[in-house]
């Protein structure tokens, strides 16, 4: 019977596999959970604060909210889903989906660059009729 091969990354000289999935300790799970709860509090508090007053741009709220959501998602992916302890192949596929979905953002450019017409009434900041 053939000895264990590192099918993910080829042989090591002694025939042992190159990469192996390792599993975290319990404390990591609980730590992640409390971090997530904390970030949830941040998210909700952020909703009630209007950052445009402090930092002079209306976009800050959504940007920070998305950053916070991304950090939460990263925590879940790396720790709960054990990508941190996985092989390179697992890491590749974990990253691929989230990056690829951004590709659809090209569709945005269509709407940005259309010549302005009355068909699309973009709502301006001072839209009060």
């Amino acid at each position: 019977m053939a000895s264990g091969h590192g099918h993910g990354a080829g042989f090591a000289p002694d025939g042992a596999p190159i990469e192996r999935i390792s599993h975290p300790k319990l404390s990591l799970y609980f730590g992640t959970y409390f971090a997530l709860l904390g970030l949830l509090v941040v998210t909700v508090v952020l909703y009630f604060i209007d950052l445009s007053k402090m930092w002079h741009w209306v976009g800050w709220n959504i940007v920070i909210a998305l950053i916070v959501a991304t950090v939460k998602a990263l925590l879940v992916v790396l720790n709960f889903m054990n990508v941190k302890g996985g092989t390179r192949l697992i890491w590749l596929w974990a990253a691929l989906g989230f990056i690829w979905v951004l590709l659809m953002g090209i569709i945005f450019l269509d709407y940005q660059f259309r010549p302005d017409s009355t068909a699309w009434e973009w709502q301006s900041l001072t839209d009060r009729k």
Partner: peptide
């Protein structure tokens, strides 16, 4: 062929 291969494949 071996368990590591199997585990990684499923994941």
């Amino acid at each position: 062929e071996d368990l590591d291969q199997q585990n990684e494949s499923y994941i």
